[in-house]
């Protein structure tokens, strides 16, 4: 059963240089209890998507169309007062670079207590008990509740933020680049923590990341975003063994894969396009080695392949892309 459904979402930014089509027709479903990853390079619209779900977009962002259905409610239509009952209490988020956003002059325990008492109507003593439980849940030593942020390492501060996000027992956790900027060993620990939390709490998790290698280890399903659109969507095994979109294929092939045969890395020419004037037709066509005339003119629809996934490519049934 899907717990969250995003349908044909379009979010544009009004800027001095023109309209930036950051998210341009994105649809996906988050099933209950699954880890769903949105993968893409910087500027592909993945953070805008998650910020729209939380309804925390900056003023210059305009939601052009679409719906986000959560528990039968369209989050884009309800007034802010109603949204406040959902934000953080039912859908919580760990922000990108959050680990640098703790208040340096306040101990971490009381920062989480603040978050709890703001959202839930419970006495402070009870909130402190709750924080202690949360600390244990995310693998932090409860004796360090009264320590200050500078006494925590990067990975531990990320755990503090995960604890804070879980403080009101949400049903959905959105984690925006939770491992970026952490060392490999710590990255792995944080991803394992997310996986454990899903199991223990029955959480549904949306993982936003640029790191294809990291998602391979923890996700159930992934969506690959390119220039504001989802180009491929499916089960993690299908995507990594039999990608249908050239972008997915080239991206996977461009990672050096330790332990396999050393062969020259695949490269993708050029760089991601500007979203003010995205290329016509398929947005990937200027960089795609397989592009044909049709790709320059006509935008490929997102088609269903034997109920195994979705892909937006004119050539999906002609190319034989096997990893």
């Amino acid at each position: 059963m899907s717990i969250l459904e995003v349908n044909n979402l379009r979010v544009y930014y009004d800027t001095m240089r023109g309209e930036v089509k950051a998210v341009d027709g994105v649809s996906f479903k988050l099933e209950k209890g699954e880890i769903f990853s949105i993968v893409g390079e910087s500027g592909c619209g993945k953070t805008t998507t998650s910020n729209t779900i939380m309804r925390i977009l900056p003023p210059e962002a305009v939601i052009k169309s679409g719906s986000i259905t959560f528990d039968g409610i369209n989050l884009l239509e309800i007034p802010e007062k109603e949204m406040k009952k959902i934000r953080w209490k039912r859908i919580a988020m760990v922000f990108q670079n959050a680990m640098n956003a703790l208040n340096p002059v306040k101990n971490v325990g009381s920062q989480i207590v603040d978050a709890i008492t703001t959202h839930l109507n419970i006495p402070e003593a009870e909130a402190w008990r709750k924080v202690k439980e949360l600390f244990e849940l995310v693998g932090l030593d409860p004796s360090r509740l009264k320590d200050y942020p500078h006494e925590f390492s990067g990975g531990m501060r990320q755990r503090v933020f995960i604890a804070m996000a879980l403080s009101c027992d949400p049903e959905i956790l959105i984690a925006d680049e939770p491992t970026t900027g952490l060392d490999v060993i710590v990255q792995r620990n944080i991803l394992n923590l997310l996986r454990d939390l899903r199991k223990k709490l029955g959480l549904s998790i949306i993982l936003i990341t640029h790191d294809l290698a990291a998602v391979a280890q923890v996700s159930d399903k992934i969506a690959i975003m390119y220039a504001g659109k989802i180009v491929e969507y499916g089960n993690i095994y299908d995507i990594f063994t039999r990608p249908r979109h050239p972008y997915t294929y080239l991206l996977i092939k461009s990672f050096p894969k330790i332990g396999s045969k050393k062969e020259r890395l695949v490269t993708i020419k050029g760089s991601p396009p500007s979203l003010i004037n995205p290329p016509k037709g398929c947005r990937f066509h200027p960089r795609c080695p397989y592009a044909i005339e049709k790709c320059r003119i006509e935008e490929p629809p997102l088609v269903n392949i034997n109920n195994k996934g979705l892909v937006a490519c004119h050539l999906y049934d002609q190319l034989n892309l096997v990893i």
Partner: peptide
């Protein structure tokens, strides 16, 4: 053992190391 590999078929068993540098 902790390097993430972009291949879900190869789930490596990571050696757990406590703490940070």
């Amino acid at each position: 053992s902790n390097i993430p590999i972009p291949d879900p078929r190869r789930k490596t068993e990571a050696i757990e190391i406590k703490g940070e540098v």
